[in-house]
């Protein structure tokens, strides 16, 4: 429900997120496959700009999480595991 309290909390939460390093949706898309394999196959951290974009852009994050799930499924893993490993890299640099 769009009450003033939930409104304030939601907008504030967005303003507090570390979204500021700029990256466009197109650039995020272009780099997402290679960077995701770095995360899932080589346990490397996300580049700062891509991490900031995934924190700030719900659509790109949603699509990259699905890609992580699909790659995990193809590798015979639980799809949730792929998603969790990506989310962990988004949560901390």
């Amino acid at each position: 429900m769009n009450t003033e309290d939930s409104w304030t909390n939601t907008v504030l939460a967005h303003a507090r997120r570390p979204f500021e390093v700029w990256l466009s949706c197109d650039d995020c898309f272009d780099r997402s496959d290679a960077i995701l394999e770095d995360v899932l196959d080589r346990d490397l951290p996300l580049p700062a700009d891509l991490r900031a974009h995934l924190i700030g852009c719900p659509a790109c994050r949603d699509e990259m999480e699905t890609l992580a799930e699909l790659i995990a499924a193809d590798s015979g893993l639980d799809p949730a595991e792929g998603r969790e490993r990506l989310d962990a890299r988004i949560a901390r640099p």
Binding site: F29, S32, D33, A34, L36, E37, E63, T66, L67, L70, I71, D74
Partner: peptide
């Protein structure tokens, strides 16, 4: 820079 299938999947998902 990634496997071809990973690169291709992202188009299907998008």
């Amino acid at each position: 820079r990634s496997r071809f299938t990973t690169w291709a999947y992202k188009f299907g998902i998008l």
